[in-house]
């Protein structure tokens, strides 16, 4: 009794800390505020992804990019594998909340069981993600600079290389009509490159010498810039098929200068960064779950008299699931 009184007294000072904040323990409140800040971080990343995707005239089609299931199908099974991953994560969220519920009933054995299930679910998800990354990297999806990142000289050289490369390819077809094509960049195109921003319409010539106005999406959307529509998906060198906004497959080789593989690289950057950051959360989540699970097995929370640590790690785990719900929709479905 005397200890309790002295404990209360020691907590009256402004810097001594109090037992409750907003009606819950400080630990739980700060877990919530951490998750709130993490929600802002993920929002920034995902809206950044949305920005790049929205201003891009073409984008890799997720049903083509994500169409392989390990062992079962190398291709031709769009979204199946990610469906399995999503199910694993939702199921592990279920076992997590059941562990919290068992903790409220002080049923230590049930908490043990559900913590083990949750850890297994987390490890399964991580394994799936490792497979998926490995597969996509082997397919050629990678991190890299996109046109906007290059310095002036590099950008000019790049554009001229593409124009030249295009000319060579056409000559190889020994098509007299194409051989005559003018692949020089127009003065306006050079002006655009000098500006290093695509804020003005650019006139480029294609193989037939026809002029195309290319607008940056920041001004007029993709007005005046259309890649040739094709009926069958055409894969570029990264194994990615492109679609326009209307959902038609387009030929990415339509004209090289207009479409370096910038969108694919940008897709790779955003995909690996955001799913990587989420995967890092899953990874740390599994580590924390294992620590709490060991405590449950040691009976730490029986001694302590409550299972709030399980509840707190549960909040983190559900947050990881919550972020995946958004990543799943934004990267795989849309």
């Amino acid at each position: 009794m005397s200890t309790e009184i002295s404990l209360d007294q020691s907590q009256t000072g402004p810097w001594e800390g109090r037992k409750l904040a907003l009606g819950v323990t400080y630990g739980k409140m700060m877990m919530w505020f951490f998750l709130l800040s993490d929600a802002f971080t993920f929002s920034a990343f995902l809206t950044g992804y949305g920005y790049f995707r929205f201003i891009s005239t073409t984008w890799p089609n997720p049903e083509v990019v994500f169409q392989s299931v390990p062992v079962v199908a190398a291709h031709g099974a769009p979204l199946v594998f990610v469906g399995i991953m999503t199910f694993i994560l939702i199921a592990s969220s279920l076992t997590m909340v059941l562990a919290v519920e068992a903790g409220h009933r002080h049923d230590n054995n049930a908490v043990k069981k559900f913590m083990v299930y949750t850890v297994v679910g987390g490890l399964m998800f991580l394994s799936c993600q490792a497979y998926e990354w490995n597969h996509l990297i082997h397919q050629g999806l990678k991190l890299g600079l996109t046109a906007g990142d290059f310095a002036y000289e590099t950008e000019l050289a790049e554009a001229q290389h593409h124009a030249h490369h295009g000319a060579e390819a056409e000559e190889a077809h020994s098509d007299a009509h194409h051989a005559e094509a003018n692949h020089e960049l127009s003065a306006e195109a050079k002006g655009w490159i000098a500006e290093r921003r695509i804020f003005y319409p650019v006139v480029l010539t294609d193989a037939d010498g026809k002029e195309h106005e290319i607008w940056d999406a920041n001004t007029e959307g993709d007005k005046g810039f259309e890649l040739p529509v094709v009926s069958e998906p055409i894969l570029d060198k990264h194994g990615v098929a492109y679609m326009d906004r209307a959902g038609n497959y387009v030929n990415p080789e339509g004209y090289e200068v207009a479409l370096p593989s910038g969108e694919t690289t940008q897709f790779g950057n955003l995909f690996f960064f955001i799913t990587g950051f989420h995967g890092f959360h899953v990874f740390t989540g599994v580590l924390i779950l294992i620590i709490i699970m060991i405590n449950v097995f040691k009976g730490t929370y029986i001694k302590r008299g409550h299972y709030e640590m399980v509840e707190k790690v549960g909040l983190y785990w559900h947050f990881v699931d919550l972020v995946w719900v958004f990543v799943f929709t934004l990267f795989y479905l849309i």
């Binding site: 907590q11 800390g17 409750l20 009606g23 323990t25 001694k303 302590r304």
Partner: peptide
Amino acid sequence: MSGNPHDMVNDGHYEAE
């Protein structure tokens, strides 16, 4: 209640109850 003062500090949840 547990005799460990540290636990008592962290026991707000159930104390709240």
